[in-house]
Design a protein around this nucleic acid. Structure first.
Length: 571
RNA sequence: UGCCCGGUGGUGUAAUGGUAACACUACGGAUUUUGGUUCCGUCAUUCUUGGUUCGAAUCCAAGCCGGGUAACCA
């Protein structure tokens, strides 16, 4: 087994690091020859909402294991509840999985594909005396189920004959009964300490159109009666799900064993929690329906489509999932880990560009009026192959308001009266005069430049501490830039006090829209989805929804690390 | 209240009876035409109490703490 492991590690460098506990199980199963060494997983979303970063963890796990062990991974929609599920979500989910970089095995699967099989299986259980039709209402069923510390009571319908059950079940299917009038239940143990084994429902009556089967069925199988059999039929070997299904596992196993069919192994892991982030579909839906965000793909949403629109790359999401690991321990991952991951990827691949977000005009009094020269700028210092570009320089420029202070604190080495700084790829400049408007705001700086410092080095060898970015006024592009911050101020939204509204923690500053930002002219051709580093500021991408040629809109993906901001905070 | 599952630096994980380690964060420093990147360094960890053992993060027991669980949701 040791040699097997190293062979795998050699052919799959990404699994060379210590294996998570699920991969350990998979390797042990392979070594033992279980399922003839075959590995087949599945990702089983319910099509009733959009995928989020927590799903990405599951996707990376399931598809990743299939890839690592030359196995397969199915994409299967768990569409057993016609009342909440819609085709709209199916398409969005497929797109998100593909965008993340994964391809499912064969056709997309649906739980509804096996409705006929499930029906046959149910008849098998009825014939074996292991399932019965129950007339109890939902409320009554709850009462009969008992409490945690007291056993339930048998349903008065529990001992119907096989013939009667068969007849009733068929009539349920034929639509002879109203919603909720009858259920088909597994006959297990009303005294089980595990509530899931107290005669769980297998079928309920719902006269509702299903997004795929239309009105063909009016009885629908429950999750518990569907999932394991679906795994079995698809030949799944390892059925990976989240912790809350752990106490369903005995039921999962019971169904399969009593049917005598292929037995996949259910394995549970802890779902992802992120600081400042809500992940439940209910809450996400609340944000969307309440108009608190701009839809499922609002760049502040933790949805895959939101992160995509925000500028996250599939690589960064996959790397994130690899970094956080897989365990059974509940945890809360710092959002900073996700942000660091996207910085790391974008640092390597994003072209650098100069953009002034909050412009202040700078006039170089000793620079010839009307003169324009081109300066050479490096596109990506991390990637020499990215080459260089020419950017215009002139007498009038914009710099960022943050790069000038009239009365700077100690340690500030950007521009202030009397101080000399370097304009990146340009010249040294010195500020002599501050022009303000009536409100006392700085509107213009009168500066001089040192013609000898062309290229950013002074021949006399004098040094400047600060280098700031700039955009020539002439030819600058105007753009809108959306500065995003966390959606929730509370670090752990799970800590919202009982009875309190979690939405009270919504961050009122989660979006700041900046208009009239000045961008270097090379950005004129930027296309939706293009990602850049705005030098010294952060990573930004062209919004895929609202940006237009000539009216560009950028989203801030993440800031650059900022040790000066940290310094200021300390003071 | 019953049952199930967890508990390792601030955070996320590793160590699978044999020197508690890695990453992130934080803090310090070097380099730097991005206060970015990169590099070097520092701080800091086995929930408690017993038991088994030459030896326990690891096995056992009890306790404590956290999570899940009583849809005809998934």
């Amino acid at each position: 087994m040791t040699s097997d492991h190293s062979a795998d590690a050699a052919s799959h460098p990404e699994v060379a690091k210590p294996l998570d506990f699920i991969r350990q199980i998979v390797e042990a199963d392979r070594a033992a020859g279980k399922h003839a060494g075959r590995v087949h997983t599945r990702f089983p979303p319910e099509p009733n909402g959009y995928l989020h970063i927590g799903h990405a963890k599951s996707i990376c796990l399931n598809f990743g294991i299939a890839r690592d062990y030359n196995g397969k991974c199915n994409l299967r929609f768990d569409d057993t509840n016609p009342e909440t599920e819609e085709t709209e979500y199916v398409e969005a989910i497929k797109e998100d999985v593909r965008w993340l970089g994964f391809q499912w095995d064969g056709e997309v699967k649906f739980a509804s594909d096996i409705f006929p099989t499930l029906y046959e299986y149910a008849i098998r259980l009825i014939k074996a005396g292991k399932a019965y039709v129950c007339d109890l209402t939902a409320e009554e069923t709850g009462a009969y189920r008992g409490k945690w510390n007291e056993p339930g009571r048998n349903s008065p319908y529990r001992d119907r004959s096989v013939e009667e059950n068969l007849d009733l079940f068929e009539r349920m299917k034929n639509g002879e009964f109203k919603n909720g009038e009858k259920t088909l239940r597994a006959k297990i143990d009303m005294a089980s300490p595990n509530m899931n084994l107290r005669d769980p429902a297998m079928y309920r009556i719902r006269h509702a159109a299903h997004h795929r089967t239309g009105n063909k069925w009016c009885i629908y199988p429950t999750y518990d009666w569907t999932h394991g059999q679906n795994d079995s039929v698809e030949g799944i070997t390892h059925s990976i799900c989240t912790l809350e299904f752990e106490q369903h596992r005995p039921l999962y196993d019971w169904c399969i064993e009593n049917l005598g069919i292929h037995h996949p192994q259910q394995i549970e892991f802890a779902r992802l929690n992120l600081t400042h982030t809500v992940m439940s579909k209910r809450r996400l839906l609340e944000l969307v329906r309440g108009g608190l965000v701009d839809g499922w793909d609002d760049p502040r949403m933790p949805t895959i489509c939101g992160l995509r629109r925000r500028g996250y790359t599939p690589e960064s999401l996959r790397n994130f999932c690899a970094r956080i690991g897989v365990t059974k321990a509940n945890s809360l991952t710092d959002l900073g880990v996700l942000e660091q991951e996207v910085r790391e990827h974008l640092n390597a691949v994003a072209p650098r560009v100069m953009a002034v977000l909050r412009p202040i005009k700078v006039v170089l009094e000793n620079y010839p009026a009307g003169q324009v020269e081109l300066r050479e700028a490096v596109n990506n210092p991390e990637d020499p192959a990215a080459g260089v570009r020419q950017i215009p320089f002139g007498r009038e420029l914009y710099i960022d308001a943050e790069d000038f202070m009239e009365h700077p604190p100690k340690g500030y080495f950007r521009l202030f009266p009397g101080n000399e700084v370097r304009l990146r790829y340009g010249y040294f400049i010195k500020c002599h005069e501050v022009v303000k408007n009536e409100a006392g705001e700085v509107t213009e700086l009168r500066c001089t430049y040192d013609p000898e410092s062309s290229g950013g080095q002074a021949p006399d060898g004098r040094k400047v501490k600060g280098t700031i970015h700039w955009v020539a006024a002439n030819g600058a592009i105007d753009a809108e830039v959306r500065m995003y911050d966390v959606l929730l101020t509370r670090e752990n939204p799970g800590d919202t006090p009982e009875g309190a509204d979690w939405k009270a923690d919504l961050n009122p500053h989660s979006l700041e829209v900046l208009r009239g930002c000045k961008l270097e002219s090379s950005l004129a051709d930027a296309r939706p989805g293009d990602r850049f580093q705005f030098e010294r500021t952060g990573y930004f991408c062209v919004d895929s929804k609202d940006s237009q040629p000539g009216q560009l809109v950028f989203n801030r993906t993440v800031t650059l690390k900022d040790s000066w901001a940290k310094e200021k905070k300390k003071a």
